[in-house]
């Protein structure tokens, strides 16, 4: 599968696209260029250092202050998890003496349980998460494009319906999904209960939803003039969409992809119905088994597993940041 966020491909598309945004491009770059140079160019840094502290503080310093405060706020509760993961007999919040014992045996043990194949879960979660994220971005972007660019009867009702469908309390969702998937599985065993592909299909059922809105709002900010210019050049609607518009909305695609990945990565209820063989299960399903039985909870191993499971999410975000923040901005409004 091609990765929509592939850098090389992105550069190519950017290439192709450039003439079309030329009108706005230079203005954009002009606004950016000096800053880029300033931070990227080491020789200019001494000038910055000589700035007075109050000015530095007013400009960026306070941001660091907030950053540090938030760092503590966001990470502190998780230190308990980290501490428990490093203590072979650890409890989650039995004590405020964190890191009394530092021992990596839980992490080692995590990979040595034949009945609980952590490595396989990890890989499964990654694959299912990435495929679902790519599918969600694709389906959502198609729909958002239609809602944003095309005018048709039922457009607003359709948008509203997307919003409302997701609000229905899915009290019996689990029962319904089981009935549905065991029915589908009788016709296509490849996507029935017990298969990862079936699980991905169920997840894709949620592709149109709030994420479509996020993309829809973003699409609306891309000037229609760009589409029209391309149309005049003889480009088909598919070429405009895949070749031009998708590149311009890269930041929001990255955000939606990340949200969908995280959502899938931590989804438990549907995955536990769908995946029955330990080798095919995901992290969320597998890990929970360590603590689901009240009398044999193993918080230490569970915590170690949860700490490692957070890494892909953070790595993906780190990787996507350049698309989220640095994506080609449209440059101007309509």
């Amino acid at each position: 599968m091609s990765n929509p966020f592939n850098t090389e491909q992105g550069a190519q598309v950017g290439d192709r696209l450039n003439p079309l945004v030329a009108g706005s491009g230079p203005t954009d770059r002009a606004a950016r260029a000096p800053r880029t140079v300033q931070t990227a160019d080491g020789r200019l840094l001494p000038t910055r250092r000589r700035r007075s502290f109050p000015r530095w503080f007013a400009d960026t310093g306070w941001r660091h202050l907030i950053g540090v405060v938030m760092l503590v706020f966001a990470a502190f509760p998780l230190l308990y998890v980290l501490s428990a993961s490093l203590n072979p007999t650890g409890t989650l919040v039995g004590s405020n003496q964190l890191f009394r014992v530092v021992d990596f045996s839980n992490y080692v043990e995590l990979f040595q349980r034949p009945q609980q194949p952590y490595a396989a879960w990890f890989l499964n979660s990654l694959v299912i998460g990435l495929v679902t994220a790519a599918g969600t971005v694709f389906l959502g972007a198609l729909a958002a494009y239609a809602f944003s660019r095309l005018r048709f009867t039922g457009r607003r009702v359709g948008l509203l319906t997307l919003l409302l469908v997701q609000m229905f309390p899915q009290l019996l969702g689990v029962v319904a999904i089981f009935l549905l998937m065991s029915g589908i599985g009788e016709i296509f065993p490849q996507v029935g209960i017990g298969t990862q592909s079936g699980l991905i299909l169920v997840y894709l059922g949620g592709a149109l939803g709030v994420n479509t809105y996020l993309m829809y709002g973003f699409f609306n900010t891309i000037p229609v003039s760009i589409d029209e210019a391309a149309k005049l050049d003889g480009a088909s609607h598919a070429q405009i969409f895949f070749g031009i518009v998708l590149r311009l909305v890269a930041p929001i695609l990255a955000v939606v992809g990340l949200l969908s990945f995280i959502g899938t990565f931590s989804e438990f209820v549907i995955a536990s119905i769908m995946l029955t063989d330990p080798q095919t299960q995901t992290l969320a399903v597998g890990l929970y088994q360590f603590v689901s039985q009240e009398t044999s909870r193993n918080w230490a191993i569970f915590s170690a597993g949860a700490v490692l499971a957070a890494i892909p999410v953070m790595a993906l975000f780190l990787y996507l940041q350049k698309y989220i923040i640095g994506g080609l901005t449209a440059g101007s409004v309509k």
């Binding site: 694709f138 389906l139 959502g140 198609l142 729909a143 494009y145 239609a146 095309l150 359709g158 997307l162 469908v165 997701q166 229905f168 899915q170 019996l172 969702g173 319904a176 999904i177 549905l180 299909l201 169920v202 894709l204 059922g205 949620g206 592709a207 149109l208 479509t212 969409f241």
Partner: peptide, 16 residues
């Protein structure tokens, strides 16, 4: 543009 997403929505969400 809407058909693929709506198809999945209809099968997996509306049914539920």
């Amino acid at each position: 543009y809407l058909a693929p997403g709506v198809f999945f929505l209809a099968v997996f969400q509306i049914f539920i």
